[in-house]
């Protein structure tokens, strides 16, 4: 535990031209948020490991032709970070459009309408039509759990639920099955949620789901979201990544 008490080295860098100081080793996203600079993020969840999958948190770093996912890229001394170029907007728009087209995200009939992070981001980015065709996936809605519901047709595979169930609740009821475009969030051995023996019904997963895929039955979506998060995160884990 000794390292925890060691004073971390502080470094200086700029984000969108603004000078900021940061702890060495922290991610760009974290430092930006601490300084009230907004970078969108969908798969990122404070308090659990980073995933780096959604790619809406991309930023540019001066001197490199590449773009970087800010939720997994550590800051470095003298870095000049750009969070909002035209190019980044273009990429973020693609990411959001692709997510909206991957499964039938028809917001008007979704429980999360109005409190969905994907919907909000689409509005922010001015996504008003999709350049690619929608998929009309037809996964079965799982209503077997007495308190929660799972609609795979809304899932954006951000894995927040998986990480919080594993790292905070400590049971690892949830994981992904198959791969690529066939990936799907499952409980235990691809069981119906109500029959997943390992689930403690803690509700953390549904609280952090950014969209309307996991939700509390019979409760307005906005009320069951994230508010409780602070109390979950009793121990901040180091920001390692899972694969």
């Amino acid at each position: 535990m000794a390292e925890v008490w060691e004073a971390s080295k502080m470094i200086e860098l700029t984000i969108d031209g603004k000078k900021v100081t940061a702890k060495e080793g922290d991610t760009i996203l974290k430092v930006a948020r601490e300084n009230n600079i907004y970078i969108p993020a969908l798969c990122y969840l404070e308090g659990v490991s980073s995933f780096g999958g959604c790619r809406v948190c991309l930023v540019e770093i001066k001197g490199s032709p590449r773009v970087f996912a800010s939720c997994v890229t550590p800051v470095a001394e003298g870095m000049e970070i750009i969070t909002n170029s035209e190019r980044l907007k273009r990429y973020r728009k693609w990411a959001v459009e692709l997510l909206l087209s991957e499964r039938p995200h028809v917001c008007s009939v979704c429980v999360a309408n109005g409190s969905c992070e994907l919907q909000q981001l689409a509005t922010d980015l001015g996504v008003d039509h999709l350049r690619v065709e929608r998929e009309w996936t037809n996964y079965e809605l799982d209503l077997t759990h007495e308190r929660f519901a799972y609609d795979p047709n809304r899932c954006i595979l951000c894995t927040r639920c998986i990480r919080i169930c594993d790292e905070i609740e400590g049971v690892h009821t949830i994981d992904l099955m198959l791969r690529g475009k066939n990936s799907k969030v499952i409980f235990d051995l691809n069981d119906k949620w109500g029959f997943a023996e390992s689930c403690t019904s803690c509700g953390k997963c549904s609280a952090v789901c950014p969209v309307g895929a996991l939700y509390v039955k019979g409760k307005p979506h906005s009320e069951s979201k994230r508010k409780e998060l602070a109390s979950f995160v009793t121990s901040r884990r180091s920001e390692k990544t899972i694969g």
Partner: peptide, 13 residues
């Protein structure tokens, strides 16, 4: 693998 959006969804499109 399906982890990131450009590859998982973009390539399929």
């Amino acid at each position: 693998c399906g982890k990131c959006v450009p590859c998982r969804v973009g390539l399929y499109k």
